[in-house]
Amino acid sequence: MNAARIARRLSAMAVAFVALTAVPVLTPASASTPVATDAFLRGAHFSPDTASVDVYLTAFSGGTTNLWLSGVGYGDVSAYRPITSGTYAVSMRPHGASASNPPVLTWTVNLRPGSAYTAAAVGMSNQLRGVVVADTLKAPPAGSGLVRVIQASSRAGHVAVRAQDGPVLTADTAFGSTTDYVAVPSGRWTLNAQSSTQPTLAGHVGVTVGSASITSVVLLDGRAGGLVLRTVLDAAGAGGVPSGSVLAGGGGTAPHQGAAADRLVAWAGLGCAALVFLWGIRSRRRVSPSRP
C-alpha cells in the first residue's frame, strides 16, 4: 500500500463521513412549508334588477381567466375562498354566457396577505358597478361580536338599523353602501330596519351573535315587495379564548442531558477515526523498507 493509496482511501472516507453527517442537517429544511394561500375572497350580487351572473377571476400575474362562481343571483354571497394575495380582475357575464363574450362588468381587487374581501356588484343594472369591501378579521371585544350592514335594497333607499333594546348599527345608510362594524354583546337579537326614504318600509330579522363572531346583515328588496334582512356569518373565532400556551408533553423523549451525550458520541467518533488513521500509517511504514 503506497502513500497515495492511503491518502485516496482516507479522503474517500472523509467524503463519506461528511455526506453521512450532512444529511440530517439538510433534512429539516426540506420540510419547511411555504404559504400557498394567504388571503380570502368571496363574491356577491347586490343589484336588484340584474339577472344571475357567472363570475370570472384573472390573476394579474399569470393572466389565465377562470370561472369562479356560477349562477350568482341577487342577494347571493358566496363562501370565502382561500387565495394567494395579489391583484386580480373580477369580471361578470350573464349566467351561461360563453367566456369569450365580453363581460358586463370588470373591476380590480387588490388582496393583501392575511385579509378577507368581498367583491360585489352593486347598484341598478343601468348604473352597475363593482366594489371591493374589506372584511375585518379582527377579534371583537371579549363577550361580543361585530355586526355591520350592507344596504342592497333599492326600494328602501336610506335606512336605519338597530338591535332591539341594543346598539344602533347605523342611523342612516344609503343603497349600495356598507357600514362599519359595531360591537354587539353576544346573544340572541332582533335587528330592526326602518327606511327613511319610504317610511312605510320596514323589516326585521333574528340573529344569534356569537362571542368572537363577525356578521353582515344584508338589506334586500323582497321578491314580493317589502324589505328583507338576511344575515351572513363572515367569520368566527373561538368563543372562550384560552389564555397562554398549551402544556402538551411529559418530556419522555426530550434529549437527556442532550449536549453532553452529543459531545461524548462526537469525541468517540473522532477517537475511532484517529485510531484507524494511525493504524493505517503504521502498516504503511512497515511496508516501506521492503520496497525496492
Partner: peptide, 23 residues
C-alpha cells in the same frame, strides 16, 4: 428550500363554488 412538497402556488385555478344565499 422547497418546491416539491408545496401544493401549487398558482392562484389561477380557484375552482367553482356555488354561491349560496344566507348563511
Amino acid at each position: 428550500s422547497t418546491t416539491s412538497s408545496s401544493p401549487s402556488t398558482s392562484p389561477k385555478i380557484i375552482g367553482v363554488a356555488t354561491a349560496t344565499g344566507a348563511s
